[in-house]
Design a protein around this nucleic acid. Structure first.
Length: 429
RNA sequence: GGAGGGAUGGCCGAGCGGUUGAAGGCGGCGGUCUUGAAAACCGCUGUGGGGGAAACUCCACCCUGGGUUCGAAUCCCAGUCCCUCCGCCA
């Protein structure tokens, strides 16, 4: 949620910033501002009514003590009480409406974010790694995987339908090795605390991250009268780890890493990435998350992005870093770097990680604060998240980049300790 | 699933429906004392929202949401979470 005070005092700036996202939210912003003004008008009236009621209450108590008649006072009390109730109802309605609008406004882009309406305006920041050259035509993983006997899309569709996959044998093992490798790296070398969170979260948690109320269609909701949803990313449970808390500022930054499956409806992506493991209803991810101070958050953003990049470097997978344009960023992000891994089978870079600073956007929704130096006034924390990495896409990259003429795949050295020292995945004979 | 018990400030804990934002203790901060420290003593010590340049001031908040009442931390209803016992269960 953006700061309501900004809408009140700097409407033009907010409008301009949101316009960079290729959105037109002038109507909503004007409505927020109007409701805000109404709110500020009701509050003094309400408080005055409450004060009158309170003072009268004290008089009644006194009169009762001395045994005086208090019938007139009681009658007056009724009037005051009605006024309070009326004003309270008015304030409640205005605040609810205002909140409803605010919850649907995206975050303001940071000043370092390039303008632009969509991914075409994204800017490459850096490249790493030498693109592999093959003396044969490299296969895409949707051919390579089944040929190797490690990926099975047809059987998955029988039990679950489209956008699911079964990993078999060395494929399942490679998947597990990637998870363990990433967790080991981030916990031992990058200082993250490992979290094993719930995979089902309630609606409030999703409001906190910005997935609700606007993107309900992207989520799998449990049947029945529960308000539980399957996590679309570990970002949700991790962000809510400290909801409604005031963190001792001396403990910041707090860095967490969690492995979870992720579940997404992928509504509206019909016909997009229908082949292979790129876009699935269920995938796995190792997620990085930080709580930090506003002063440190952009520094931490760089660090977090580097931590994700190091995974790719250790695996020897060529990639590039891209800064997303304002129009291509997610709802909650103020700034996002995407990491794109090279997929030779598709002759292109594909997103494998997205690292965002949401500034106070999620903290304001989830009420996450910190107290600098452990004392003084509590301030909203900044939150950061990033994939470190998407496991399925990493698996694809390992297969496509490591493939050999005979259809076998070389296991990256860094992964071998997690693969019983297996060096090559051989095709079935 | 059944039967009970509970939820109050950073923590523990008290609170006949009427100056109770809330006793007391612990912890924390500041001070006095001390060569230093401890002890002792004194003071301060929540969050949000209005107003104000500020000092300050007003309003709200005792799990959440309703209700009763002139007035609710205190009474009633619903819900959430925690604990104990029984049943079931990986």
């Amino acid at each position: 949620m953006i700061d309501p005070a900004l809408v009140r005092d700097h409407l033009d700036e907010v409008e301009a910033k949101l316009a960079e996202r290729a959105t037109n939210l002038q109507v909503e912003l004007a409505a927020v501002k109007e409701l805000d003004a109404k709110r500020l008008a009701i509050i003094p009236a309400l408080e005055n009514a409450r004060r009158l009621r309170k003072e009268l209450g004290a008089n009644i108590a006194r009169a009762k003590k001395t045994g005086e008649s208090s019938d007139d006072l009681l009658k007056q009390g009724q009037i005051f009480s009605d006024q309070v109730k009326q004003q309270e109802a008015a304030l409640d309605a205005v605040e609810q409406d205002r909140r409803k609008l605010l919850l649907r406004l995206p975050n303001l882009p940071h000043s370092s974010v390039p303008r632009g309406d969509d991914e075409k305006a994204n800017q490459e920041v850096s490249r790493w790694g030498k693109l592999p050259s093959f003396d044969f035509t490299p296969k895409a993983h949707w051919d390579l995987g089944p040929d190797l006997g490690v990926l099975d899309f047809e059987r998955a569709s029988k039990m679950s339908g489209a956008r699911f996959a079964v990993l078999v044998g060395a494929g399942a093992k490679l998947n597990r090795a990637l998870i363990n490798f990433m967790l080991a790296l981030h916990t031992k070398e990058h200082g993250y605390t490992e979290i094993a969170p719930p995979f089902l979260v309630n609606d409030q948690a999703l409001v906190g991250t910005g997935n609700l109320p606007k993107f309900e269609a992207d989520l799998f909701k449990m049947a029945g009268d529960s308000n539980l949803y399957l996590v679309p990313t570990a970002e949700v449970p991790l962000a809510n780890l400290h909801r409604e808390e005031i963190i001792d500022g001396r403990r910041l930054p707090l860095s967490y890493v969690a492995y979870t499956p992720c579940f997404r409806r992928e509504a509206g992506s019909y016909g997009k990435d229908v082949r292979g493991l790129i876009r699935q209803h269920q995938f796995e991810k190792v997620e990085l998350f930080k709580f930090t101070t506003p002063e440190q958050s952009y520094n931490e953003h760089e660090k977090l992005t580097r931590h994700a990049e190091i995974v790719l470097e250790k695996l020897g997978l060529p990639y590039r870093r891209v800064i997303l344009s304002a129009g291509d960023m997610g709802f909650a992000a103020a700034k996002t770097y995407d990491l794109e891994v090279w997929l030779p089978g598709q002759d292109t870079y594909r997103e494998i990680s997205s690292c965002s600073n949401t500034e106070a956007f999620q903290s304001r929704r989830a009420d996450i604060k910190f107290r600098p130096d452990g004392t003084g006034k509590a301030e909203l924390a900044h939150t950061l998240n990033g994939s470190g990495l998407a496991v399925g896409r990493t698996l694809i990259a390992v297969l496509e980049n490591g493939q050999q003429r005979d259809g076998s795949v070389v296991v990256p050295e860094a992964l071998r300790p997690f693969m019983d020292n297996q060096e090559v995945i051989e095709p079935p004979r």
